[in-house]
Simulated assay, not measured.
Amino acid sequence: MLGQHVLFLDGEALVIDKPAGLAVDPPRAGGISLENHLASLTFGFRRWPVAVHRLDRDTSGCLLLSRNPKAHARFQQAFEAHQVTKRYVAILDGVPDAAEGVVDLPLAKVSTAAHGWRMTGDPRGKASRTVWRVLAERDGRALVEFRPETGRTHQIRVHALEGVGRPVTGDPVYGAAHPGGMMLHAIALTVPRPGKPDIIAEAPWPDRFTAMGFGAP
């Protein structure tokens, strides 16, 4: 049940704090996904809400769902027009050489029989840009804020590794697995709505970050 994870709710929008480990789309191999929880997120509507964007299964935090088709179309247009403000926090394996910066690295999908698919920097790929800054350092790791200006698949994870030079702690694809999981959290989301108040949501600080010694800055 995700009713206790609601961060924002009105007649056309719903933002939840998606738990790490919950897939947004049903996994090909089967298993629980967001779809299994939608009936508990109707809040008086007959129609089930629909996810407007995606978070990776192991990423927690702010996920926007629409409550009707017209709102869904408007929200999708806002994402496509880069009008949505997204803020993530991540723990990186290692401390970046700089305190802040901008990663402007196009991304493309590559696939091999041995390792499956992944994203990588490629000048022929889709434009991808992320602003970042270090918030704290501890025990050879860094807490970093990421503000993606585009929304490519695995964008922050690849930009952390190939742009900042340090992988996200616990990233099973671009780094090394960690018992606490992947340390990436979508902490804040703002979606503009012409003629209506903005959708503004902020997710609670994740316990797995605190367990690694990084409290909320």
Rank of each mutant, 00 (worst) to 15 (best):
P148V: 02
F214E: 00
A108W: 01
A127Y: 07
D104F: 07
V144H: 05
L143N: 15
A114Y: 08
T169C: 14
R129M: 12
P179M: 02
R166G: 10
L135H: 03
V164E: 02
V158N: 03
V168T: 04
V95H: 05
V103W: 10
W132A: 09
L143I: 15
M182K: 04
R152P: 15
P206R: 00
I187M: 11
P206H: 01
L135I: 03
A108E: 06
G213C: 08
V173F: 04
K126T: 09
I156D: 03
P179Q: 06
I91M: 03
K86D: 00
D93K: 12
P206K: 00
A201N: 02
K86T: 04
T190E: 14
P96L: 11
K109Y: 02
G170K: 05
A142S: 14
A211T: 11
P179I: 01
G175Y: 01
W205L: 04
H115N: 04
P167I: 03
V164Y: 10
G163Y: 14
T210M: 11
H178S: 09
V168G: 00
Q155E: 12
L161E: 01
A211K: 12
G101K: 12
A108R: 09
E202Q: 13
L105G: 04
V95T: 09
S111V: 06
R138S: 12
I156V: 08
P96T: 05
A211L: 11
P106N: 06
R118K: 07
D122F: 13
R157G: 01
G140N: 10
K86C: 01
Q83W: 13
Y174S: 14
A142F: 07
P148N: 09
K126C: 08
V103T: 11
R141I: 07
L143V: 04
H185Y: 14
L161C: 13
H82D: 08
A186V: 09
G175H: 01
I187D: 02
K109R: 15
D207S: 06
G215V: 12
R124Q: 14
Y88S: 00
H159P: 01
G125D: 14
Q77Y: 08
A142E: 06
V103R: 02
H185F: 09
V110N: 03
V164D: 00
A186R: 04
